[in-house]
Amino acid sequence: MPEKTADKVELPEATGAASEATAPEAGTPASAKARSLWSDAWHDLRRNPLFLISAVLIVLLIVMAAAPSLFTSASPRDADLAKHYLQPPNWGHFFAPDWFGYDGQGRSIYARVIYGARASILVGVGVTLAVTVLGTLVGMVAGYFGGLVDTLLSRVTDIFMGIPYLLGALVILTTFAERKVWVVILAMAFLGWTTIARVARGAVVTIKQADYVVAAKALGASTTRVLLRHILPNALAPIIVVATIALGGYIAAEATLSFLGVGLAEPTVSWGVDVSAGRQQLRNAPYVLIVPSVMVSVTVLSFLMFGDAVRNALDPKLR
């Protein structure tokens, strides 16, 4: 169909002022500064309220994960049975350990929620990093070299994709007696890299046909150079988008696994573990379950919004 949007209306970029003697074509680019595509994206992001809200929340969560003691002086493991299922007091006691009440073992729910951020963020970021590295590698090799390599890697990807995610994670994690954070990360990454691999492969297949890649080859550039200088930087945008959106999903998945009793377990402080524990006194003390659940939801939502905003900025065509 016809070209309609403003993106596509051809707007010659340079000004017509042919004043410079050295430049017969009057080469004054539209903007005075060097503007990379990344900085253009950043320019868009800064003006997106969705991005600002989610970014503030994410920064808050990261600070929480890195330095929980900034938010509470109480320890998540201090159990005072006298405070067994103690109700939250009147609203208004900000940053007090009893803000959200106490759980069955008399531990401050507020403190546990603050300290629980670390496990969730760690798993979310850890899985995302591992998945991105592995997926990008597989996707790039498959997409760039094609042929038999591609066929083999793509079939392996398909096989992994065929494994139901939660069921697979359940099976793997139940074989571990002690489930530390890194075990959960590895198990989840082992099953989760396929999406990124596919996205990366698709991007690389398109990009490797671009004239600038052909131009680099014509100059005699080595395969490594072509991959790292030309293909990777251009394939990165869709990968980053998928990865940020997936990050929220991994946090939710970790909570789910912990809830089911195969993810993180006591004594690790984690939202999933707390949600699981909260189930027991759902009627008398619903807050024990609700507070960590809300934390999971807010975190997942933040990352989803963040991913959405990043996608809009990096790829305006998807809008």
């Binding site: 340079a14 430049a23 074509e25 080469g27 680019p29 903007s31 060097a34 503007r35």
Partner: peptide, 21 residues
């Protein structure tokens, strides 16, 4: 025929003819 000071610019800041140069 392009201004030598443009080394730090990115291609999308130029028009078609300039890019061909």
């Amino acid at each position: 025929g392009l201004n030598p000071e443009y080394v730090n610019r990115y291609p999308h800041q130029f028009s078609g003819g300039q890019r061909q140069r």
